[in-house]
């Protein structure tokens, strides 16, 4: 299968510029980056894609075998790098995608100019034995699955969006509805498990490429200790705390987020 259509790849920005690859996390799709892309397009070649099972990716490519672990997703990232052949990329992974970047960079460091781990977590579940605090218990994750189920019934209909302030262009809303509502509930459950039950703490020390850990000021999903842990584990990494609050700085504070990515990618690329 064609990797570009499998992952619904979009390439935009300056041709020949340093490459920034933006990877969305669990829940949404590449639309998550829409507010930071304009700021990056001037100087960078920007690569956007949907994880298989999300957004406009090809659902037929999804299989529980490949996508029940982070490895399948990391392999996809490497396949994208190979297929696009744009040279080393600065990989920006939001939330769960940060660890996909870590795994991919550990496996094939030459494919990466650098990693930006945006609102990352190495493991969401608390580990009392080592004193690691991820912020959640396994029971919490079951509760999330219930929330997903509870919103399964109304997902396609009730989520119909207001048409982005463009009532004269209903196709925009149409596109958005489809894109956001396409997550198959069965796939979402599997992705939720991968996201919240994976433990990648041991993989961090394998990273040998320049890395920026960018965490938010107040993130209900990734507490500050987690960012500090990741920073401490990845040799030579830098840690920055954005003013942005919440778990999605690319939406809450796009300028600040884009500036952090651009400054790092310029130095790395």
């Amino acid at each position: 299968m064609d990797v570009r259509s499998r992952n619904h790849v979009t390439v935009t920005g300056r041709v020949g510029g340093p490459v920034v690859m933006l990877a969305h996390g669990f829940g949404c799709d590449q639309n998550m980056w829409r507010l930071v892309v304009p700021a990056l397009e001037r100087d960078f070649t920007v690569v956007l894609f949907d994880h298989v099972g999300s957004g406009n990716s090809e659902l037929s490519a999804w299989s529980p075998e490949r996508y029940s672990s982070m490895d399948g997703y990391a392999e996809d990232v490497l396949e994208l790098c190979r297929e696009l052949a744009l040279g080393p990329v600065t990989f920006v992974g939001h939330s769960v995608s940060a660890m996909m970047g870590v795994l991919a960079a550990a496996r094939e460091p030459e494919a990466f100019a650098g990693l930006v781990l945006l609102a990352p977590s190495a493991c969401f579940i608390d580990d009392p034995d080592t004193g690691y605090r991820g912020g959640f218990s396994a029971a919490d994750i079951d509760e999330l699955l219930e929330s997903l189920d509870a919103n399964y019934l109304g997902w396609s209909g009730a989520m119909a969006p207001v048409i982005m302030g463009n009532p004269e262009r209903p196709e925009l809303g149409e596109e958005l509805t489809n894109s956001f509502c396409r997550t198959d509930p069965g796939i979402a459950r599997v992705f939720a498990r991968v996201t919240f039950l994976s433990d990648n703490r041991r993989d961090l020390s394998q990273v040998r490429v320049p890395t920026l850990v960018a965490q938010c000021s107040s993130d209900a999903i990734a507490p500050p200790e987690v960012g500090e842990f990741i920073h401490a584990q990845i040799p030579g990494s830098r840690l920055t705390t954005l003013n942005a609050t919440g778990h999605c700085p690319q939406l809450a504070a796009p300028e600040e987020t884009a500036a952090a990515i651009a400054a790092f990618a310029r130095a790395a690329g």
Binding site: S137, L144, S147, V162, G165, A220, L251
Partner: peptide, 19 residues
């Protein structure tokens, strides 16, 4: 807690993007 995870990963981003 489960609802918060759902909120942060779905509801919040959708609200930001769609208003």
């Amino acid at each position: 807690v489960g609802g918060r995870l759902y909120y942060e990963t779905h509801f919040g981003p959708l609200l930001r993007m769609q208003g």
